[in-house]
């Protein structure tokens, strides 16, 4: 019991001071506007925002720092954010917005596993692209939504950065790495391993390459993504999940 009260106190105290000064400044500004113009043009932030949002954009950066021209999502920053969201009693849900070209396998899987094991409600929204390692992240959330124009590229893992298949073990290692991704995807969606690998090695979809490009509706038809939608439906779904989780469980008291 003591540890619980301590936790509540700590997180409550830690979060509040961050915006305290800004709010006061904003209020002053509103008062000034009302006096001068007879109206308030500053929208005050409602106090009951109980969801947080995380943007997964560009390359997912992992073990290696990418050259500065790449737009990256740094996993070492995202992971503690997920810890804060999971622990903060005032945050009820998390909206994960993806527009990513993929990136580091292990960093991507790390984010996906963190999202998957959260107790807080999670909804993902794929806009633009959720390619390569972005797909497991989208599927790790409790509910996944893709925009109609969103694309997801499914393709095999490739040798990169001077790796050469000199011995059969290198090939087996690559296959093992790929299996980690395939297994995560098939475990968190309705697609079968056989069908997923079919899409992965399909020819004719990508120029001079194997793999498939799925648009929003196709991804839903294949059983990967739950629904085609946008911001409105994503937030509505998240609110619904929060409401359902807040309802007292049935049974004897």
């Amino acid at each position: 019991m003591t540890s619980e009260t301590k936790n509540d106190y700590q997180s409550g105290e830690e979060v509040q001071p961050v915006h305290d000064g800004d709010f006061r400044e904003e209020k002053k500004q509103v008062a000034k506007n009302i006096r001068q113009l007879g109206q308030s043009d500053v929208v005050e932030q409602p106090p009951d925002i109980n969801i947080h949002t995380i943007n997964i954009i560009g390359q997912i950066e992992g073990h290696m720092v990418l050259p500065p021209k790449n737009k990256t999502t740094k996993y070492e920053h995202v992971i503690p954010q997920l810890v804060a969201v999971e622990q903060n009693p005032r945050i009820k849900g998390l909206l994960v917005i993806l527009n990513t070209v993929g990136g580091d396998v292990e960093a991507g899987l790390a984010i996906a596993e963190m999202l998957e094991s959260m107790r807080k409600q999670t909804v993902s929204l794929v806009l633009g692209g959720g390619h390569s390692i972005g797909l497991p992240i989208a599927l790790a959330c409790r509910y996944s939504i893709a925009a109609e124009t969103a694309t997801m590229t499914i393709h095999p893992l490739r040798l990169s950065g001077g790796m050469i298949i000199g011995i059969p073990q290198t090939f087996e290692y690559m296959e093992k790495m790929q299996d980690r991704i395939v297994r995560f995807i098939t475990r968190h969606s309705a697609i079968s391993e056989k069908r997923y690998k079919e899409l992965m090695f399909r020819t004719g979809d990508l120029v001079r390459d194997v793999g498939s490009i799925l648009m929003g509706r196709e991804a839903v038809a294949e059983g990967l993504i739950d629904e085609v939608g946008g911001l409105g439906s994503a937030v509505a779904k998240l609110e619904e999940l929060i409401r359902l989780s807040d309802e007292p469980k049935g049974g004897l008291q």
């Binding site: 390359q59 990136g103 580091d104 292990e106 950065g161």
Partner: peptide, 10 residues
């Protein structure tokens, strides 16, 4: 490190 991305390494 293995990158799984649609952007070519180069």
């Amino acid at each position: 490190m293995i990158l799984y991305t649609i952007v070519p390494w180069e």
